[in-house]
Design a protein around this nucleic acid. Structure first.
Lengths: 198, 198
DNA sequence: CTTAGCAGACCATATGGTCGGTATCATTGA
DNA sequence: TCAATGATACCGACCATATGGTCTGCTAAG
């Protein structure tokens, strides 16, 4: 506890105190969101982040604001992770779509659950202001990427849905690694030669 | 209010008083679950069902018990709805799988959301006792059906995941009817000639 | 000395659940 | 046939706790 405090209060590598706390809160909230669902309290998050509730509320002035920030943060993390999976040696359409599929259908379970939590909890998120817009913006970002990539946007859209179904089951530990692997192979095949699947 | 009471207390067609109330509560809870998520209070549900909180707690002795009952009820409704979509004239493998796909990818949005709520909220449901077992039992029921039907169980499994991805987006109004239609066509094609999609 | 960053005490409200009571109905015994 | 009895189905009041959020104040950095 005292150690945590010291760790947070030390300014390391030009990262400000406040930024570190903010990050700790976002991480803790993301984890809790993944396994407890939307019904998480500020105290829970604050404790998990090693901050007091007041400290948390200094950075996120309300619960809704916190949840929205978490969703935005997770979406951003997911985009970054997917970009790392981008294989630039594939100089034909579908690069981004494949990166998307690989990220959704290949990640280790717990990590994936964190990434996928916003989607899984969407229906519980709809009432929090701004969340809907954020999800739509994220969706649009991906659609644009697929378009730039030269892949048929409609087919890309459907393949994404398929992948999301696989990912949801995977995130919740419903499927075996073999089942996920097989589904991913099918999905990647679709991105290689979409004509076969019309 | 007084009318509701009279309506509930009247015994109609051999349906007992308690059964009607229980049903009203399950329906109300199902609806609320679909658009508010797991964070629904007993008072909310009771009000929506036209019962007092005490009345509700007479039938479901705790919140967890209520939520579990709702999940079981919705799963049962979904199975029944899917069975109605079964086309017995298709005397070749995949009947049940097609019924599953049709139900998930063809229902009107709000109805589908009700059916699909348990899956969407699963991560929030995991901590409620019995819910996990119920979902597994439901999953097993479907797997068994696909097996009886003579369809390759592994392929059926994957197609189900795909359909669930489409349904999730559909339930949350993310996709246009055209997109859903197209996805459904693709899925049904997969059930007709699965060899093409290995 | 000022301000950013945080903690602790505090508050109004909401929530899950208990308890005693009551009206209605079904059953039984005379 | 009818009063008595017990069970069913429900309500309102109440309670302990949890929760989101505010306000005041402390501490260290600039």
């Amino acid at each position: 506890m005292a150690n945590d405090d010291l760790a947070r209060q030390a300014v390391v590598g030009g990262i400000r105190n406040a930024d570190r706390t903010r990050r700790a809160v976002l991480d803790a909230a993301g984890r809790l969101l993944a396994d407890k669902g939307v019904s998480i309290s500020l105290k829970e998050v604050a404790d998990a982040a090693g901050v007091s509730k007041s400290g948390l509320l200094y950075h996120f002035s309300s619960r809704d604001e916190l949840l929205l920030a978490v969703v935005q943060d997770i979406n951003e993390q997911f985009r970054n992770t997917a970009l790392k999976r981008l294989d630039l040696s594939e100089n034909y359409p579908g690069k981004m779509l494949r990166a998307y599929v690989r990220t959704l259908c290949d990640e280790s379970g717990s990590e994936l659950l964190r990434f996928f939590a916003p989607s899984l909890l969407w229906s519980g998120m709809l009432h929090i202001p701004g969340a809907s817009a954020e999800m739509e913006a994220d969706e649009k970002w991906w659609d644009d990427q697929f378009n730039i990539d030269g892949f048929d946007p409609e087919i890309a859209h459907i393949i994404c849905r398929f992948a999301e179904g696989v990912a949801a089951a995977s995130a919740l530990n419903e499927d075996t690694p073999e089942q996920i692997e097989r589904a991913r192979t099918m999905l990647l095949a679709m991105t290689e030669d979409p004509k076969n699947f019309l």
